[in-house]
Design a protein around this nucleic acid. Structure first.
Lengths: 117, 117
DNA sequence: CGGGATCCCTGGCGATACTG
DNA sequence: CAGTATCGCCAGGGATCCCG
């Protein structure tokens, strides 16, 4: 085993810091699918998320430069969210996870209500 | 909520259920790197994890059939952990995340002490 | 419409002690 | 060596109300 183990460990930690949490993965994935989503559209798709969590999560994703926010200063307000380049680069990994989960569920269906959305 | 009728299996949610949490990603990664690790070896590598968390996390990974446990009934006890086939199939995704984080850290070093190990 | 501000509570996680 | 068993914290997340 190479001796850059320590940085390897940190990488895994860092990656999970970026996409961990209850909604980050799905938000990134939906933004990839739809290219652009408004705040309210995200809220509807995430089905049950509170405004506090949605706003807070989006702010974290912005801070990590995975999501960009574009506000239109008009009435009523309009804000569009989309993936940054760095955010897009995460998609293949998330898609691989999604595909893995799909294969698993096809082989042996998973009946965990917590996982529904 | 009665909205559960509209709920569907969410692959992204399921994937994060499997590899989320504070140590799951790293445990899977280390087991991939070392092929086989004893309980104490894992504990040392994870550097700071409590026995409670390690045991609990390993049990969850076992339950999800990502990790297999082989106990040797001898004195002193000896228990070996390794990835199952399903666990190995997760590695490419985790490795992609790890690589993404590495590239990111190379471009713009991340200075978050929480993420170090 | 897109949030902020508050209050509240669960459960994820840590620390410590003990055991076959 | 490889765990169990308790106790307890506190941050992640939920519910509700309010605002420009």
């Amino acid at each position: 085993m190479s001796e850059n183990e320590n940085s390897t460990f940190c990488s895994v930690n860092y990656a999970f810091h970026c996409i961990g949490g209850k909604y980050k993965g799905r938000i990134l994935w939906y933004l990839h699918e739809h290219k652009i989503l408004r705040y309210g559209e995200l809220k509807r798709i995430l089905n049950g998320i509170t405004t506090k969590m949605l706003t807070q999560t989006l702010r974290e994703l912005e801070k990590d430069n995975l999501v960009s926010r574009k506000a239109f200063h008009e009435v009523p307000p309009k804000v569009e969210y989309s993936l940054t380049k760095a955010g897009e680069e995460l998609i293949p990994s998330i898609d691989a996870l999604r595909a893995w989960a799909d294969r698993r569920n096809a082989e042996k269906p998973i009946d965990n209500l917590v996982l529904l959305c």
